[in-house]
């Protein structure tokens, strides 16, 4: 019962949404894209997208500098 978030093994929580996972991971930086098993999740769907067990989650974020 676990998921992979940016290469790290993380406990799977039943009915957890993308928004809740990001909070649990303490990902507070400006996000660009979240992918679950290669599917891109739009920002507006973060509060309703449930993360299935065994998912591979990728979170791309923006770091200041340019």
């Amino acid at each position: 019962m676990s998921i992979e978030v940016n290469g790290k093994n993380v406990e799977w929580v039943k009915n957890e949404t993308v928004e809740q996972l990001l909070r649990r991971m303490k990902y507070t930086f400006p996000l660009v894209v979240v992918k679950i098993n290669e599917k891109v999740i739009q920002k507006k769907d973060f509060p309703i997208s449930i993360i299935p067990d065994n998912s591979k989650v990728a979170v791309l974020h923006m770091i200041s500098g340019g």
Binding site: P30, L31, V32, K43, H61, M62, S64, G66
Partner: peptide
């Protein structure tokens, strides 16, 4: 996208 601030970069891409 060649902006500097993280928030602006993310907002621009979106």
């Amino acid at each position: 996208e060649a902006l500097d601030n993280a928030e602006t970069k993310a907002a621009f891409i979106e």
